[in-house]
Simulated assay, not measured.
Amino acid sequence: MRPLSQTLLKVCGATGLGDIEAAAAAGADCVGLWHGVPGGPSELALDGLAALVAAARPAGLLPVLVTFLADAGELAAIVRRTGVAWVQLHAYQPPAVVRALREALPAEVGLVKVLHVDEAGGCVERPLIGAYERAGTDLFLIDTATGDGRIGSTGAALDPGRLTALLPRLTRPFLLAGGLSAAGRPAYEDVVRHSGFRGIDVDTAARNRVTGRFGVPEIAALARAWRTGIPHTAAPAPAGGFPDHPRLELSR
C-alpha cells in the first residue's frame, strides 16, 4: 500500500464505489465519508460507511469519518464497527469531546478537529485551540463558515489573507479546505510554505460538473497543482513519505 504523500490530498463526500475508484486512480491519499451529518448530501448509513471503509483500504486510501456527532461513546462504537482510520469532528464539538474520544480510541486512530473561519476572518474556536491540542487533537482542518451559518463542503472560498492571525496559534499540523481548486493554488503560496501545512481537503473541485461524482481528471489536477505548484491537469506527482507526526503514519 502506497505511503501517504508529503502533501496530503483528501477528497470528501464519497457515496459509492465509483468515487473510491476515482479517488484512488487519481492519486488522492484520503477519502472523507460522511456519517452523522443531518441533511448532508453525502450522508451514509452505518452499513454504507462500513462498506466504503472496506473498499478504501485495499485501494490505498485512508478512510476518514466526517461527522457532526458529539457523543464520544457513539463515535468510538462507530470506529470499532467500521474501522475508519481518522475521525474528523466537523462541527462545534468542545475539547471535552476530543479528550473523551482520545481516551476511548486506540492511539493509531487520528483525531481531526475543524476550525471554522468566517468571511471576516474570525474563528469561533480560536480561544479553544490550545485546549483542543491538549485534549488530543492530532490535526486541524481549517475551513470556511459562511455568513448564513453553513459549514462543511460549502464551496465557499477561504481568503488566504484571513489565516495570518490564526496560523501562529497552531502547534499541530493542519489541512486547508474552503473552496480550493487547482487554478487557485498560487494564491495560497504563503500558507503552503507554513511549517504546519500538511495538505488540502476538497469536495466541490474534485467532482465532474456534469455527473457530480468524483472525477479522475479533476482530482489529478488538484494533486498536481498542490503538490508541484503547477496548476495544469495531468497525472499526480509520485507519492512520497510523510514522517512528520507519528499518528499521521496510520495503517491503511
Rank of each mutant, 00 (worst) to 15 (best):
F140E: 00
P173R: 04
A145K: 14
R169A: 14
R198E: 08
A206N: 06
V191I: 15
H232Q: 15
G184C: 12
A187N: 07
R207N: 14
R209S: 12
R150P: 13
E189I: 06
T233M: 14
P231K: 07
G229M: 05
G179T: 02
A145S: 09
P217R: 12
P186W: 00
H194N: 03
H232W: 14
R213Y: 13
E133K: 01
D159E: 13
P217V: 02
L163G: 00
Y188A: 12
S195T: 09
W226D: 03
N208L: 11
V191N: 07
E189Q: 14
I230F: 07
A187R: 09
G136N: 13
A220V: 05
G152Y: 02
P231Y: 05
P168L: 11
D148P: 02
D143P: 01
D148G: 04
G199R: 00
L163M: 02
R224M: 03
T137W: 08
S153E: 07
Y188E: 09
V192W: 10
R227F: 10
R224I: 01
I200V: 15
G149F: 08
G212I: 01
I230V: 15
P160S: 12
G152F: 01
G155N: 14
P168G: 13
R207I: 05
T233N: 14
I151S: 05
A165F: 04
G184Q: 12
F197M: 03
V191R: 12
V191Y: 07
G152A: 06
R209T: 13
A225H: 08
A206K: 05
F174G: 01
R198T: 04
I219V: 13
D190T: 13
W226R: 01
T171Q: 13
D143L: 04
S195A: 14
P186M: 02
P186T: 01
A220M: 03
W226T: 01
A157M: 09
I151Q: 08
V191P: 04
R150G: 09
T204I: 10
F197C: 04
I219N: 05
A221F: 07
H194I: 01
L167E: 10
D203V: 00
G229A: 07
G155A: 15
G178A: 13
L166I: 06
R198I: 01
H194G: 03
G196E: 01
T233A: 15
L170V: 03
P168M: 11
T228L: 10
S153G: 06
A135L: 04
F214H: 05
I142S: 04
Y188R: 06
A135C: 02
L180I: 08
D203I: 00
R172N: 06
R213C: 15
D159A: 07
T204H: 14
R224N: 06
S153W: 00
A220G: 00
G147S: 10
P168Y: 11
A135Y: 03
A205E: 12
L167T: 09
G199T: 08
T137Q: 11
T164D: 15
L175K: 05
G136Q: 11
P168C: 12
H232C: 13
T171S: 13
L166C: 11
G149R: 09
E133R: 01
N208C: 14
I230S: 05
T146N: 03
L141R: 02
A135K: 04
A145W: 05
P231Q: 08
D201P: 00
R193S: 14
R213I: 10
D148V: 10
G161E: 04
D143E: 06
G196L: 04
L166S: 07
T164F: 10
